[in-house]
Design a protein around this nucleic acid. Structure first.
Length: 468
RNA sequence: GGCGCGGUGGCAGAGUGGUGAUGCAGCGGACUGCAAAUCCGCGUACGGCGGUUCGAUUCCGCCCCGUGCCUCCA
């Protein structure tokens, strides 16, 4: 398998540290608000990654953090604690806020058929590990204390710009955020805040440096090493984490361990709206709930996402989502039709070879840096191939869907209510009597309810448009 | 201002130095009482201008446009 590694910006053959198991860490949500579709796109990408690894025969140790410590708008003094803000806004404690949004997050994931990570770890439940990690960094001599906070001194780490690909000029006058006066260098970052800048700071803990709370980047390093050790196969996240968060994670972890920390860094690209990327701090904010209100199902969105490569920006529009919806509904109806078809499986050589060909194409696509669009197109090719019998098609669909995750094999044939059934019967009587006007009227009624009828030689069949 | 990424048919979006995926939408035909579904077929798509090449959408340069990052961000 080949994955694109953000570290050197090229694809490389993936080889896990230990032969059978892959340890991967994925940056999870900051739970002070609902996840939006852009966030969720990244988790869909990671889900495809995990499923692909498992299908390839690896055991996975998939770890995801929950950032339930309010982290700062910035390191500047006027930064805001998002968790505290949400707590104030909603008149609930930060812990209640965090748990509420965490629950919704995993419900959203479930509705998207995103497998739950093997380990989900909350920052607030790993404060001691975080403190221990900071402590080791202090002992390594890569930190300094200033204005009550512990900072990481980025000049101590020679590879600091490796992931980001080059230094950033923090003196730029156009920077949106004021510089933190406690920093020696713009790139330095806080490991532990012991002098809370917030008058009503609620989440705080004792530490060797005073009562306070951890910086954002440190939680990932601390928890990742807790569950995966000091060497990690794959670390994922959104592309926006490259320049700051992941760069800082590397600095902390490699300073602490003294060796390469993560072998492969994988980053998902943004979901783009007409007005730019979707983001929590703007009105470009669409959630799973919004989606439902607009008449879509979460899986429609999954289908949309898998039509694009994870490293390409995806242009979201309701139009595009509608196309995905129709595509997935068609897929469901196709698969349902396959189940009703003759179960006789052809075992002639040509069919077996053809099936293997599709398996090869499908797998090769995924093994080439998770090319889901090609994998998806292969699924369609299978369904439409006239040389394959339905039984063979069905087993291929089942295999492919283990990775694509649309739940195609679990799709339940829709059940028609009695009155709708009666309508169909009535229509057939009208047809038998040649009363086309009445028959068409009934057909229209059914269509309005999402029930489409088709008259075949063997009788009238029906299907529903919204099968999901 | 600095750095990065991208511009593919109506929409979304793969991919490739030479027969231009796939899905949705659209068109034509078969089928049908008419439809629908299905099947068969269809679209002079690769931002612009140059360069390299036998040949470029694919490589290079410039331009235009869009977008991302520059310490909240998936």
């Amino acid at each position: 398998m080949y994955f694109f590694n953000s570290l050197n910006r090229s694809k490389a053959l993936f080889e896990p540290i230990t032969p059978e198991t892959v340890g991967l860490y994925c940056c999870g949500p900051t739970v002070y608000n609902y996840a939006h579709l852009g966030n969720l796109r990244t988790y869909i990408f990671e889900d495809i990654l995990v499923r692909t690894l498992r299908e390839a025969g690896y055991k996975t140790n998939h770890v995801m953090n929950i950032t339930d410590v309010g982290h700062l708008q910035s390191d500047a003094d006027d930064g805001e604690d998002k968790m505290a803000l949400a707590a104030e806004r909603e008149q609930r404690s930060p812990w209640e806020i965090a748990r509420y949004y965490e629950d919704i997050f995993f419900e959203d994931c479930k509705s998207l058929n995103i497998a739950r990570p093997d380990v989900v770890c909350r920052a607030t439940e790993h404060i001691s590990q975080i403190i221990e990690f900071v402590n080791r960094l202090v002992q390594c001599g890569v930190t300094y204390e200033s204005e009550g906070n512990i900072y990481y001194d980025t000049t101590c780490f020679t590879h600091y710009h490796e992931l980001r690909g080059g230094p950033v000029d923090h003196s730029a006058a156009l920077s949106r955020v004021e510089n933190d006066q406690g920093k020696r260098l713009g790139a330095d970052f806080v490991l532990w805040f012991s002098k809370s800048k917030f008058p009503r700071q609620i989440m705080k803990w004792e530490s060797p440096w005073g009562i306070g709370f951890p910086g954002w980047h440190i939680e990932c390093s601390a928890m990742a090493s807790t569950y995966l050790g000091s060497r990690i196969d794959i670390h994922c996240g959104g592309i926006d984490h490259i320049p700051i968060h992941h760069t800082n994670e590397i600095a902390q972890s490699e300073a602490c361990f003294g060796h390469r920390w993560v072998n492969t860094w994988m980053h998902g690209a943004f979901l783009i709206l007409d007005k730019g990327k979707m983001s929590k701090s703007s009105d470009n904010f669409i959630t799973i709930q919004t989606l439902r209100e607009e008449g879509f199902k979460p899986l429609h969105y999954r289908y949309l996402c898998l039509g694009a490569h994870y490293r390409s920006e995806l242009h979201f529009s309701w139009d595009a989502l509608d196309g995905a919806k129709r595509g997935l509904e068609n897929l469901y109806n196709r698969v349902l039709a396959l189940r009703h078809a003759s179960p006789i499986k052809k075992t002639v050589r040509s069919v077996v070879e053809l099936a293997d060909h599709y398996r090869y194409v499908f797998w090769t696509a995924l093994a080439d840096d998770l090319n889901a669009p090609v994998a998806l197109s292969t699924l369609w090719a299978v369904i439409k191939d006239g040389d394959l019998d339905s039984s063979t098609k069905l087993s291929l669909v089942g295999e492919f869907d283990r990775i694509l995750g649309f739940g195609l094999m679990e799709a339940q044939p829709p059940i028609l209510s009695e009155d709708r059934m009666a309508l169909i019967t009535a229509r057939n009587q009208a047809r038998a009597q040649g009363d086309w006007a009445l028959a068409d009227e009934i057909r229209k009624q059914l269509a309005d309810q999402g029930v489409m009828v088709k008259d075949t030689r063997t009788g009238t069949e029906w299907y529903v448009t919204d099968i999901l």
